[in-house]
Nucleic acid binder design. Structure first.
Lengths: 83, 83
DNA sequence: CGTGTAAGGAATTCTGACACG
DNA sequence: CGTGTAAGGAATTCTGACACG
């Protein structure tokens, strides 16, 4: 499910993360929720999954900079080693 | 997806129905959204699908009473004709 | 019967900032 | 760096009612 339909409150419940954490991960360019005309965030189930991966990795010691490479969009993810 | 995660606004966008229509179908016992602690409705993708079926049938001339039998929960849906 | 609407209130979310570290 | 929090405002949703029919 890639449709952006959940408000941040629901995502908090599903992930156990705080609004602050979720918004911060967005600030660090790790997740990209859609926005309503009014400016409210809308997340997909994929986003929820990604957020959980992010939190998981952070508990393992990674910082948001490193995560940007690990939890990257699938398209870039499997790029072959150039050279 | 049976998880109740969407607010009524998103459901309106997905179905093209008005909030009024959606709430009315609930009043007629055709859909059963979950509620947040604060009282806000939360719908699942199944609910969205059911709402579309309801609207479809209504345009075909059925009223909410008749629909309660047609668009019934799957468990009751295939009940064998008794007698 | 089914749906639109204005009304007033309440729940939810938003941003920018201060704080700690 | 990552996250908590109080602050003030704005968007979203809620209920009950009047309206038409």
């Amino acid at each position: 499910m890639e449709s952006k339909v959940m408000s941040i409150g629901v995502v908090c419940e599903l992930t156990g993360l705080s609004e602050r954490q979720i918004r911060y991960y967005e600030e660090r360019k790790l997740v990209f929720p859609a926005r309503t005309k009014g400016g409210n965030r809308r997340y997909s189930f994929e986003d929820v999954q990604k957020l959980q991966e992010i939190h998981q990795k952070m508990q393992e010691g990674f910082n948001t900079f490193e995560l940007k490479e690990i939890i990257s969009p699938k398209t870039k993810r499997c790029a072959p080693a150039y050279r």
